[in-house]
């Protein structure tokens, strides 16, 4: 049996594991490469669980998360990445906006 991606109490989120990406660049690429239906499905599945996710993760020091908790943390950051797409733009990105890949993050 393969190892779970997330902690036991969040096993219902396993189908979302592909969104648990470590860097802003990777999460942004995933958002840009997904259809709006895929983004919406991710958002709809994770948002109702976020209070529980953050309450759980707040018990750990932010800089010392165990592996499964770290993946759950990256998953939560992917929700922040797609939030503007779902809540403001209703599309992965606005059609006439500047290409996000030209913004080079210095914090990675």
């Amino acid at each position: 049996m393969s190892e779970r991606c997330f902690p036991e109490s969040f096993k219902d989120l396993e189908p979302l594991a592909a969104w648990a990406l470590e860097t802003e660049t990777a999460r942004s690429r995933k958002r840009q490469a997904s259809t709006m239906a895929e983004i919406q499905a991710f958002y709809d599945a994770l948002l109702p669980r976020m209070q529980a996710v953050l309450s759980y993760l707040n018990r750990f020091p932010p800089d010392g998360l165990p592996v499964q908790e770290a993946r759950l943390f990256y998953l939560s950051l992917a929700l922040a990445e797609v939030a503007p797409a779902v809540e403001l733009f209703q599309q992965p990105s606005e059609p006439d906006t500047y290409p996000v890949e030209k913004f080079i993050p210095e914090h990675e």
Binding site: N58, L65, A80, P84, Y98, F103
Partner: peptide
């Protein structure tokens, strides 16, 4: 950030800010 929740809130604000900057850049 003192906890993961604060780090999450920063990520939300940061990504919103970045997407606004993309509009400015356009």
């Amino acid at each position: 950030p003192q906890n993961v929740g604060q780090r999450f809130s920063q990520e939300y604000s940061k990504i919103l800010t970045r997407d606004i900057f993309l509009e400015d850049a356009s």
